[in-house]
């Protein structure tokens, strides 16, 4: 199946969350369910090199490149953060580096999760977004230097 664009997937996610009608408890539960569906990162990859710094919950991010696209794999030791992480993977993984760099992740605000941004000390979600974009920038730079 053809992967949708970043904004198409964001809009899907906004639709899904709109069914919850702003109920924060339901949103948390839904996030936990989504997190459970995210394939677990192999223990061998849960190393400090892949760790995105957060104070209370840990997030691991692993990246590889596949024919101009960036593939992200991620995991977290807390259920809700893992759900959030799964959304980012769903949106940004298997996209062009350029698109990832320019992505405006408006879904975060629309689904009421902006409270997780800017609290890097507590959950590493904001730091993860930065890290994902940073990988895309690094990849792009590398490609440009080669051509």
């Amino acid at each position: 199946m053809e992967k949708g664009s970043i904004n198409e997937i964001q809009d899907q996610i906004i639709d899904e969350f709109s069914l919850l009608d702003g109920d924060m408890e339901m949103a948390n539960i839904y996030l936990m369910e989504l997190g459970q569906k995210l394939p677990e990162l192999d223990e061998a990859h849960k190393i400090d090199d892949n760790l995105v710094k957060g104070c209370q919950s840990k997030v691991w991010l692993k990246t590889h490149f596949d024919d101009g696209r960036i593939i992200y794999q991620a995991d977290s030791n807390t259920a809700i953060t893992k759900g959030l992480v799964s959304l980012l993977v769903r949106i940004l993984s298997d996209q062009q580096a350029e698109d990832i760099i320019n992505a405006d992740l408006y879904f975060i605000d629309k689904i009421g999760m902006n409270r997780f941004i800017g609290t890097q000390r507590s959950n590493g979600f904001g730091a993860m977004i930065k890290q994902m974009k940073l990988f895309a920038v690094a990849y792009n730079t590398k490609m440009k230097n080669q051509t």
Binding site: A27, N28, S57, T78, I80, S122
Partner: peptide, 21 residues
């Protein structure tokens, strides 16, 4: 089977402010 961060988030959704960590 539960991380304190998740418990804190679930309680916050009910308006309950606790500290976790």
């Amino acid at each position: 089977g539960l991380h304190h961060f998740d418990i804190g988030q679930m309680l916050d959704a009910r308006g309950v402010a606790v500290r976790t960590g």
